[in-house]
């Protein structure tokens, strides 16, 4: 098989998007698909500017990202120490690691009415739900990171007669860091998903609420524009996280 042009794949990718939009435009303009269900792509594009300016996208973006980062900070501050504790205490780990795995897999966001009741209709609820969804993966990956330290590195530490503190800071922690960051990335993703989700559900906050709002106002082009915008923001978020993780993997 000969070498393929490096432009072929991106061309297909881009071409599909453009093609799909063109097909949509055609179908809707011909009224085969009702413009009251799916607006013309050109209309959606046109409403982008309006949505950004009039609906205060920058401010809402800040709110959503702020809530996500707040939740992210909490999962780091709580999740990593829990992971470290369970790594150090083998019996606690055997007892509770499965519980953590269950929490990580549980659809905690379903309990959002509960959090509403407990914490009121505020950003706090959103942050807490984000935290609850993201803390377990962080703890689990932290345990995994420390537990998978290669035996030979411990031997090196002993051969250099490192104190327990030195061993932790010089060897255990740097060796575990890549896995811990995998956990943080996973946790942050869960935070973002749940933050935006809850914003839509309880109609409060930043970007999530905007979508809700525009939909209830029957501003179809605006709704689609806002959705596209949130998708773009997510993509950017994950791209940055992915890049950061790759950089760490190279060093780790």
């Amino acid at each position: 098989m000969g070498a393929r042009s490096p432009y072929l794949a991106p061309a297909i990718s881009l071409g599909t998007i453009v093609g799909a939009l063109a097909v949509m435009q055609g179908l809707i303009a011909a009224e085969i698909v009702s413009p009251y269900i799916v607006p013309l792509p050109t209309d959606i594009l046109a409403s982008f500017e309006r949505v950004v300016v009039e609906e205060g996208i920058p401010g809402r973006f800040a709110v959503t990202v702020g809530e996500t980062l707040a939740a992210g900070l909490l999962i780091m501050l709580v999740g990593i120490p829990i992971g470290l504790l369970l790594y150090r205490r083998a019996r606690l780990r055997t007892a509770f690691e499965p519980w953590l795995a269950a929490i990580a897999a549980a659809p905690l966001v379903l309990a959002y009415p509960l959090f509403l009741v407990l914490f009121g209709r505020s950003s706090l609820t959103i942050i807490v739900i984000g935290f609850a969804s993201g803390v377990a993966p962080v703890a689990l990956k932290t345990i995994e990171g420390f537990a998978s330290t290669r035996r030979v590195l411990i031997d090196v530490s002993r051969s250099f007669r490192l104190t327990p503190a030195q061993e932790f800071w010089q060897i255990l922690l740097p060796a575990a860091l890549p896995q811990i960051f995998v956990g943080l990335r996973l946790g942050l993703i869960f935070c973002l998903i749940n933050v935006v989700g809850v914003e839509v559900l309880i109609n409060l906050g930043g970007l999530g609420q905007l979508i809700n709002d525009l939909a209830e106002r029957y501003d179809l082009p605006g709704t689609y524009a806002a959705i596209s915008f949130v998708v773009l923001v997510s993509i950017l978020f994950f791209a940055i996280l992915g890049r950061g993780e790759k950089w760490l993997q190279r060093r780790g």
Binding site: A9, S13, V38, L192, I193, G197, A215, S234, F238, A239
Partner: peptide, 22 residues
């Protein structure tokens, strides 16, 4: 895979609830 798989990995983690009005 080169053309479309990145779509999956970026759209996958995006919260689908935002699509609900649609």
């Amino acid at each position: 895979s080169d053309a479309y798989e990145s779509w999956l990995s970026y759209l996958g983690p995006t919260p689908k609830i935002i699509l609900f009005p649609v």
